[in-house]
Simulated scan of single mutants.
Amino acid sequence: MTVPASRVRRRPRTPGRMLPLLLATALLLPVAFLVVRAHQYIDADREVLERERLGVEYLRALGPVTEALVDAQSAAVADRQPPRENLQQAVERAAVVDARIGGELGTSERWAGIRAKLEALPERSLAPEAAFSAYREVTDLLLALHGKVRETSGLIRDSGAASYFLQDGVGEEMPEATVAAGRLIDVAVLAEQRPATERMRTLSELATLRLAALQPANDLVNNLRAVVDSSASADLGPSVLTPFDAFQRAVEAMAIHAQPDNRTGTVDVVRLTSARDDAQRASTQLQPILLDEIDRLLVERIDQLDRDDLLTMAAGGVAGLLLVALAASGWLSRPRDITGSPQAPDTESDEPEQPVGTRWEPIRSTGDRALEPVGHGHDPDRWRPFDAAR
């Protein structure tokens, strides 16, 4: 007969229960680090793009100032009353923009100097040569401010192909072409008033200004072609292509009419002025459209960064929850730990199971071999009725 051993449970060991928690914590820390670093990188990229949008806003305000200043210069050189009203309105709008974002872009000091120069320009017409020199100094400062805005806003370092070509065209080539075309007209007007002894100097100056006007204009055309050919994200529809074609035709006309006559050494001022006016009207239409397109591309990239950030945080949260669930399941589970394997009772034996600690011995009586537990006492009289009946 087999006596089953008693089952004694042992308390689970604490190190065994702590192991899943420690492993989950060890995995959770690098996951949290990667999520935080990814969020920081995305946030830094977003700040760069937001700063570029400030540059787009500032360039939008400088465009009308440039055009109004060139018109005022041409009027002053032609000995006409400069149109001050358009220039003043453009300056006031640009001053509002500079007061709001100039500190962040680092342009406030330069803008203050340009505004002081603009306000110092006399309302009455100067002598043509003096007017040309005075306005030329201010336009040089204005072009330098365009470059400053592109540099401090980060537009000049933009990583997108389409937005880079667009900002290069609208922030550099377009204002340079506008200023140089205005100066080309002014020198052509001055050439008719200069003495014959200065003819060689005038022709050299005209050739330099012709190149200075045509090269950025051609660069702008090439930039827009590069955007159309190389980028599927830029949306340059008819609103851009129509003034773009007009600008290209006007530039080609300027290249023809800016050639001095071989006999007289002068240029056809009337036709050159007409071609320049056509180019400026086209650039006036192009500038806000191109700036809107740059801003749209930047907003698309910011939205993509926001989606990437959301996906990163969601993935990190899911990974964290899974690790926490793993740790909790390991902590709450109790492994079965017993001292020995129980042995199954002998089912073939008809004898009752002996309690632990009880010894069995036979009961000595006439004709009976039954077993009786030791210590219960033996009473012979108890079995006499049974023996008599038998």
Results as ranks from 00 to 15, higher is better:
Val227Gln: 06
Gly160Ala: 13
Asn222Ala: 13
Pro238Ala: 14
Tyr164Ala: 12
Asp168Glu: 15
Gln215Tyr: 04
Glu205Lys: 07
His146Cys: 00
Asn218Asp: 05
Arg210Gly: 14
His146Ala: 00
Val227Tyr: 02
Gly147Arg: 07
Pro238Phe: 01
Ala188Glu: 02
Pro216Val: 03
Glu176Arg: 14
Ala161Asn: 01
Val221Gln: 04
Pro175Leu: 08
Ala234Trp: 02
Ser230Glu: 11
Thr197Ser: 15
Asn223His: 15
Ser153Gly: 11
Leu224Asn: 00
Asn223Ala: 15
Ser159Arg: 10
Arg183Thr: 07
Asp168Arg: 15
Glu172Arg: 14
Leu236Gly: 11
Ala217Met: 09
Gly169Leu: 13
Gly182Asn: 06
Ala162Cys: 08
Thr202Glu: 04
Thr178Gln: 14
Val187Asn: 06
Met174Phe: 04
Leu203Cys: 03
Asp168Met: 14
Arg199Tyr: 01
Asn222Met: 08
Ala207Asp: 15
Ala181Leu: 13
Pro216Cys: 07
Thr242Tyr: 08
Gly171Arg: 01
Asn222His: 07
Ser231Ala: 15
Ala226Arg: 12
Gly160Glu: 12
Glu192Met: 12
Gly171Ile: 03
Leu211Cys: 02
Thr202Phe: 01
Pro238Leu: 11
Val240Lys: 03
Ser153Pro: 10
Ser230Gln: 15
Arg157Ile: 05
Ser231Phe: 10
Leu224Asp: 00
Leu184Lys: 12
His146Ser: 02
Ala207Cys: 12
Leu220Glu: 05
Ser233Val: 07
Tyr164Phe: 11
Ser163His: 09
Leu155Lys: 05
Ser153Val: 08
Asp219Tyr: 09
Val227Trp: 03
Arg194Ser: 06
Ser239Leu: 13
Ala161Thr: 08
Ser204Met: 10
Ala180Lys: 03
Ala207Tyr: 10
Lys148Arg: 06
Leu166Tyr: 03
Ala162Trp: 02
Val228Gln: 09
Thr208Ala: 13
Asp168Tyr: 11
Gln215His: 08
Asp219Cys: 04
Arg210Asn: 14
Pro195Lys: 12
Leu184Glu: 13
Arg194Thr: 07
Val221Met: 03
Leu206Ser: 05
Thr197Trp: 12
Ser204Val: 07
Leu206Arg: 01
Arg150His: 00
Tyr164Trp: 12
Leu211Phe: 08
Ala177Val: 07
Ser153His: 07
Gly154Asp: 06
Ala212Asn: 09
Asp219Thr: 09
Glu176Phe: 06
Ala212Trp: 00
Glu205Ala: 10
Pro195Met: 09
His146Ile: 00
Asp229Lys: 11
Ala207His: 14
Pro195Tyr: 05
Ala191Thr: 03
Ala234Phe: 06
Ala161Phe: 02
Arg183Met: 12
Pro195Asp: 15
Met174Ile: 11
Leu220Met: 10
Ala181Phe: 04
Arg201Trp: 03
